[in-house]
Nucleic acid binder design. Sequence first.
DNA 1: GCAGATGTCAACCATCTGGTTGAGAAGTCT
DNA 2: AGACTTCTCAACCAGATGGTTGACATCTGC
Lengths: 127, 127
Amino acid sequence: MDQLSRVFAALADPTRRDLVARLTDGDATVGDLAAPYDVSVQAVSKHLKVLEQAGLVSRNSGGHRSPVHLEAQVFDLATAWLERYHRQAEQRYRRLDALLAAMNDSEAADGDETPPADNPDLTKESA
Amino acid sequence: MDQLSRVFAALADPTRRDLVARLTDGDATVGDLAAPYDVSVQAVSKHLKVLEQAGLVSRNSGGHRSPVHLEAQVFDLATAWLERYHRQAEQRYRRLDALLAAMNDSEAADGDETPPADNPDLTKESA
DNA sequence: GCAGATGTCAACCATCTGGTTGAGAAGTCT
DNA sequence: AGACTTCTCAACCAGATGGTTGACATCTGC
């Protein structure tokens, strides 16, 4: 699996999102992290492994009682993807608005004479 | 499952991310969307259902051959979450840097006299 | 050095997921 | 109307996921 998929998958679980949220307050041990939830420590350990494989979290040595650390840069991977396509979608809306405005203008000017050229497929204009 | 989880889960699959990416070019029918992949149309239909339940996509009537439409606003849900904790993590780093700088300063000024107060736990300062 | 605390690994289980095929509902075209 | 196309639903299957318990390794503190 690619990292972007792992990041999104890791954040798709409420418990894991909560772990991440709490880690923005500072590093913490597995025990500290596990305390608030009513699942076993092993389950939390598994969640942390998922976060680790997504690169969202790291442990200094993997050793006993070593604090879990948030790697906040990895957020950028997900944010970048979202931003890119959000922007792309918005640009398309703007182009569509412009096209519609232009059609209205020419319609108002021409009265009813020329049917608007060749009726481009609005759902798929690729300009 | 809450919507945020559904959104992240929906975006955790490469095929579904590709569908979303292609939908930023404009609405499309299920058939058009399914064409490029070498899986069955049914599989793509399932993917679209996942995207729909996450609110990322909509169909005008659910009816036959009706185009699939991207709901780009829903991106904001995910972006907002990422932004929030990214910012929170960064603020913590800044506070930590400031604290370390202050400790360095006072150390340089005092020489070696006063041991820096009561050694606050750097991994969890809650100021 | 030993007892206890902390954390991971392994096996097991139920459920979810992403794919398949087959059937059928609902449009579209002539 | 009748044939064809498009799409979804249902059943099924293999593999992933999130949880459990039990065993074990490895630190910590007296």
